[in-house]
Amino acid sequence: MISRVAIALLFVLAAGLSLAYARAPRPVIVIERPGQCVEATEVMRRDHMTLLLHQRDRTMREGIRTRPHSLAGCVECHASAKTGSVLGEQGFCESCHRYASVKLDCFECHASKPGRVSARAKP
């Protein structure tokens, strides 16, 4: 009982604090390409990491490249027109991850800018 109250209190405090200070700059989410994402926005916000990891194994191990959750695909759509990249302070992937304190190693190997040739198979 006491612990429940404590947790509730904590939540209220945390919410108040984050409103009061906004310590980390809010993420910049600019969608330049009109249209839709590969899944509903709610799903993308919560589950994009799972979708990506699943796609990764399907492509890497089985050579299936038609699934929509391709990392090269994210970059094609979400790269900024200004920097050409999904990285950087205002970059689509990086700015949100900075806010959420997530650090990716994906772009040490994967191109952060769209290329001439899409990694996805021809239909």
Partner: peptide, 8 residues
Amino acid sequence: QKPAVPRG
């Protein structure tokens, strides 16, 4: 790197 050939 090439988008189709990630390397690191």
